[in-house]
Design a protein around this nucleic acid. Structure first.
Lengths: 353, 353
DNA sequence: TTGAAAGCGCTAACAT
DNA sequence: ATGTTAGCGCTTTCAA
């Protein structure tokens, strides 16, 4: 660590380089108007003296306001994206110290149009940095293209698209999460002939299924470890409770004995509600994400395990590294940051915040 | 949030209260030499205007150096306490921005004398704040007593003793971790008649076993769920490999078929080594803590699961809240902070850092 | 008990 | 292209 007693100031540098504070500052911020010669000398001295600018003095002097905008899907209370929002709020607290403001711009994840609008809104008044949780590949590509042109740095949150201008990505390893989920569901147990995978019936549109990779991981595990087990897909519409019950009655509910059920999105609580209402207690149920309703199902024993991630922390990390970049030009250590996958059950969920 | 555009400065307060900046500052820091009248007026104005001092300006002006000392057990590379040390180093990075230095003072956890020395060293030159990971109740009590007298705030890390002057405690819920461990070991599986608990043969001395509560949690779970299962204790000396093998040969190794083995400290890798060497592959083994060696055992499949905690993060949190306290007199939100318990297996351990 | 004033290290406008 | 200077908001002497 070269932090100890870092008492080298911009004045020391100026003196040693035989120039004025002003020139050093210009070099520090690449704001031009400096001769090549001076610049080199200053840089050399900075290196030699191990000068590190005092962030506070800097912040204090340049009363600049910076804004980070975060483009994420809109949500109902208790839904997945509310966790991200919470993280963004926590992060806002932290970086407010540095005069950085956080703003979230929301879009309807089921409408490209809405996403496009959100992007336009951002471009109308470009902020210092952007965080985006993308759903539409094509459209996102256009968006980040415009950001690049405008010189606005951006990072991906939760999922990323095929692009290479991004500063960093923060998300879960999706494929592996499916693999892990399969192990938790089955590992070391008597596995029934059939396993139920409950899925959301997706609309037409170019909307890519965000859990596709996760499902692939799950399927690969099953193929590798239990090739003879049959995987039954049950498609439901999350908004139509009656239909869900009908569907489940015809499938999971129609069978006797130990049944295995999984869901790859955050809505396993829908299944939990059904099982509770029907008084079915001999299912092994595994799902994703630590929504309040899912945790309740864990506590009551209806759901045995949840694969979760600290979505909020992920958001905090993203904001922090964007702040570091904005404040000190410090690029992130790792470009692709995979968050840890947590296994929750009724015995540890209460300590998961 | 009242952070937005908090442009109220000490000057505004001074003007509004009809006094000078100096007086406001004196009130702000309770440094006396202010008439009751002025003080009240200033406080009222501060309240009314919602004045919040600018931390940077403050830090910049008062070139104070602060020191937080951390008293923790010494360790070999790769051992449990190295994780804490890593966290302390990370934290040091963060708070160095605020002119706070971190120093660790180590002691031999198997020697009261050594702990006493460490404490004396701290008291010789009392720092601004202290973090202590206590092993000896009595001695710790004396130590924190002296800290209190000297007006030095302190927090407990990892474990805490029966005292009530501490500012905060950061640690794992030990009893519950034992309960959780038992569930992971057994839950939903065919449990053998006998379960092996491998323990460290503790020396005489007043040294309290730090895993006692954890063992209690484990035993209670077993009693509640599998009252007929016999728990066999196997005592080993971690430093004597040959003796360990002999002991294990006589117990775990002497049996056939699926055997369940647990250890309540971080040394399950000792068992893993034995099993690997002996070519025993049909044990279900669960342990604690994410030491590099334990993770390897997880990857190789010798150990099935680990209950872990982010010891490093815990240290970071402790340092941060001590820093908050020192810098802004902000007490911690929660006094007792229980860190989350993570379940690791071969599929998610690689994402655990 | 109080006010005035000189910094802390850096930025940015203004001269030169 | 470069130096000078007046702050940023707060702390801390030093006088009064």
């Amino acid at each position: 660590m070269n932090n100890e007693g870092n008492k080298v100031t911009i004045n020391d540098v100026a003196k040693a380089a035989g120039v004025s504070k002003g020139t050093v500052d210009r070099v520090l911020h690449n704001r031009g108007e400096v001769s090549r010669k001076s610049k080199e000398k200053v840089l050399k001295v900075i290196e030699e003296l191990g000068f590190r600018p005092n962030l506070y003095a800097s912040l204090l002097a340049s009363q600049k306001e910076r804004l980070i905008q975060c483009v994420i899907p809109e949500f109902q209370p208790g839904e997945f994206w509310s966790l991200t929002e919470k993280g963004l709020q926590d992060a806002a607290q932290l970086v407010s110290r540095y005069g950085i403001r956080i703003e979230t711009v929301k879009y309807d994840q089921y409408s490209v149009e809405s996403f496009r609008n959100a992007c336009s809104k951002v471009m109308d008044n470009p902020p210092s940095g952007v965080l985006v949780a993308p759903m539409y590949g094509e459209e996102t590509l256009k968006f980040v293209g415009r950001l690049s042109e405008a010189g606005v740095p951006y990072m991906f949150l939760d999922s990323k698209i095929d692009d290479d201008g991004y500063l960093a990505y923060f998300g879960m390893p999706m494929y592996q999460s499916g693999y892990l989920c399969a192990d938790i569901l089955t590992g070391g147990r008597d596995v029934p002939e059939k396993v139920y995978v409950v899925r959301i019936a997706r609309d037409k549109m170019g909307l890519s299924d965000p859990t596709a990779a996760r499902r692939a991981g799950f399927m690969d595990f099953m193929k590798g470890h239990y090739p003879d087990v049959q995987i039954d897909n049950v498609f439901i519409d999350p908004k139509d409770k009656a239909a869900i019950y009908t569907k489940l009655d015809q499938t999971v509910g129609a069978e006797k004995g130990k049944r295995f059920v999984v869901m790859f999105n955050s809505r396993i609580h829908l299944v939990a509600d059904y099982l509770t209402d029907r008084g079915i207690h001999d299912c092994r149920v595994v799902g994703f994400d630590c929504l309040e309703k899912n945790i309740e199902a864990l506590r009551s024993g209806t759901v045995q395990a949840l694969v979760a991630q600290h979505t909020d922390r992920q958001a905090v990390e993203a904001v922090n590294s964007m702040a570091d970049y904005l404040l000190m030009g410090k690029s992130v250590a790792k470009r692709d940051n995979f968050i840890q996958m947590d296994i929750l059950n009724m015995y540890n969920c209460d300590y998961y915040l």
